[in-house]
Structure formats: structure tokens, C-alpha cells
Write a protein that binds this DNA or RNA. Sequence first.
DNA 1: TTGATTGGACTGACCGGTCAGTTTAGAGAA
DNA 2: TTCTCTAAACTGACCGGTCAGTCCAATCAA
Lengths: 199, 199
Amino acid sequence: MTEKTVRSPESTRERILDAALSVFSHKGYHDARLDEIVAESDTSKGSIYFHFPNKERLFLALVEKFADLVERRVTEAIEQQTSPMAKVEAALEACLEAFARYRRPAKVMLVQATGLGTVFEEKRLEINERFARLIRIYLDEAVAAGEIEAVDTDVIAYAWLGSIYHLTIRWVYTGEPEPSRIVSTLVPMLLRSVNYKKD
Amino acid sequence: MTEKTVRSPESTRERILDAALSVFSHKGYHDARLDEIVAESDTSKGSIYFHFPNKERLFLALVEKFADLVERRVTEAIEQQTSPMAKVEAALEACLEAFARYRRPAKVMLVQATGLGTVFEEKRLEINERFARLIRIYLDEAVAAGEIEAVDTDVIAYAWLGSIYHLTIRWVYTGEPEPSRIVSTLVPMLLRSVNYKKD
DNA sequence: TTGATTGGACTGACCGGTCAGTTTAGAGAA
DNA sequence: TTCTCTAAACTGACCGGTCAGTCCAATCAA
């Protein structure tokens, strides 16, 4: 095939990442074999090892890429708002929307990147802390501005993230609850949990 | 050693389970080797295979055992209460208490049993559904009794479970937040999320 | 021509599972 | 009571399939 003779390293790398996303999200880290990713990316073992030092780093590249995307989306949504609690609400919605839109990366990050040992766990803790911080900052501002009562914002932010993750994981596997249903029930519920009353 | 010549199959099986709990909670499923469990249980490979058909079933035995214990504890706590929301609250507290008391089984069930492929995922979905049902039943009764307003109890129960899991997982890894801090912040917060006012 | 990129045959460490053999406890016969 | 037999429980050396990673030749773009 003539198309196979045109080389573009960026394109090769993207094809590898796409294939890896497909295989890892479906099989998980351990059951996904490099040869499957080779086949799906229409490239070779040597080519994969040229672009990525090993299987672990290939997997983490996917996780990092998606975490960056979520964080960017959430940050952009926050910037559209002015009051602390409006920012909190926008963050929650943007996070849920990103997970709903990118089902496979969400599955890789929330499910398949779990239980894999030290390196992976450090990455997960780091990502969780990044996301929690995005929420906690504005919860703290809301407390300071008198929008809500004083609460342990650290526990709250983690609890909120946990509820988002758990519902997302169930949706990833079963298709239920449908994302719009999650948003319409969960966001008001979480705001109520800190006694926030929208005007 | 003369003590080594005395046989008690039940004791051997328990020793294997204890050793497996230790190794699986620390290493996760894939990085835990049967030979480590052999060494820690002071028994043999063949003996393990006499008692359990394979590695997978040994792991699932641990998960099942702990899920049963949590369910039993939650059910007992619920039976001590009369009003629906008091039962809900007791369930939440009992669940958190069981996770706090049994750190390693909690880690196995919430972390190491994730991302392991079809059989494990079916077990996780099943356990999640068992736990969610324990909560959802009484949320539905509370709605029917007028204790709280009508809500999507399915989404709520899963959201609550997710927040409990996520905080527990963070505690399992970092020791923070401390369990009593989780309970004192999380339970009131979750009750607020359905607009429940204790008398 | 040169260096970057790709391809695919090959390697061997790894580890779950197997199985022939051993040991032990208890039942039953003498 | 003692001995024999048997089934259950246990042992650990061994096996071989697996798969991430290696290596080097070939191809391609500049």
C-alpha cells in the first residue's frame, strides 16, 4: 500500500496511542498484550519501543493525557464564572461532562489504572489531588465569602470526587445511569450537601 | 517440628487465606505470586491448590468473605433502628466502621480487585449492587414516609457509596483523613444532600 | 549519504498450574 | 489392643506457555 510508505512519526505515535487506548480500556493493563496494540496500530513492536520506553510508560501516557484534558476543561469552565459556588458547580459539571464524552479514557483512568502497584498508585494519588484541589479552592472561597457554612473542604472535595467516579464507573460498564441523569441528580445533591441554596 | 505434623485442614485453609490477604493487599493480584503466599502461609503450592482451584478463586474468596462481613455488619446496625432515615444513617456508619476496622480487606476489595477483567468486574458490580440496595431500600421508605423529598434513590445510593469508597481508598494509602474525621464530616454531609433534618 | 524510524524474528525470565509421591488420621478387622 | 488399609491432606520438583523487551537489518526522508 502506498499509504503505508509515507512516514510521519507524529502520526505513528498517535496511532499507537489510539490503539493502546482501545486495547487497554477493553482489556486492562495486564491482559492487554503489546502484540495486540501492534496489530491494532498497524505498526511494529520495535516502533512502539522507539516511541515509548516500555508498556508502563505507554499506559501512563494515556492516563496523563486524559487527566490533563479533564483538568483543562474544568479550569476553562471555572473561568467562565465569578462567584465561588458558581465555580464549584461549573467544575462539577465540566468534570462529569468530560467523563461522559470520553468513555474509554475515563475507564482507563478510573478503572484500569487501579490496583497496579506503586508507580501507578502514585500517579492516581497525584491526579486525585489535582482534581480535588480544583474544587477545594473554591469551596474554601465560598466559606470565606459566606456562601456556605464552614465545612471540612478536604473531606468534602474527596467525597464529591468519589461519588462522581463511582457513578461514572457504573455507567462505563452498564450504560446506566445515563449521564444527563447523573448530572441532574448529582450536582444539586452535592450542592445541598454543603447547605448551598441557589438564589 | 512436631507441630508441623499435626493436621487440621480448616487451620491450613485459614492460614492460606490469611497469607493471601497479606500478600494480595500489599502487592495486588498480578504482582502477588503464589510462591509468596506459600512462604507466608508455611504450607505448599499443592496444598493451596488442594483448597482452592486457582489463584483467581483464592483472591475472590477473600473479596467475598469481606463483602459478606460488611453486609452483615450493616444489616445488624440497620436492625437496631426503627425509622427509615435512622436506618440509612446506621448503614452509612456501619459501612465506614467496617472499612476502618479492616484496612487490608478494604484495600483488597476497593483497590486491588479493580481493573482485573471480566470475572472480577462481575463480582465487583454484584457487591456494589448489594451494598447500594441496603441503602436504597431505606431511602425509598424515607421518601414514602415523608422523611425526605422524592429523589432518584438509585443515583443517590451509588453516589454515597462512591464517596465512602474514595475516602476509604485515600485513607488506606495515606492514613488520611482519619476514620473518625471521615465519619463526622461525611455522614452529616450525605444526610444534608437529601435535605434530611434530624430532629 | 546519513540518521531517524520502522519491522519482525528472537530471547529467556517468569510464574501459575501439575502430578507423582509422601504423610497422617481414623475406621474397621482380627 | 494392635495392625492394616484407605482417603484426605499435603509436598515440592518440574513443566511449558506467555509476553515484555531486545536486537539488528531494512526502509525512508531530508
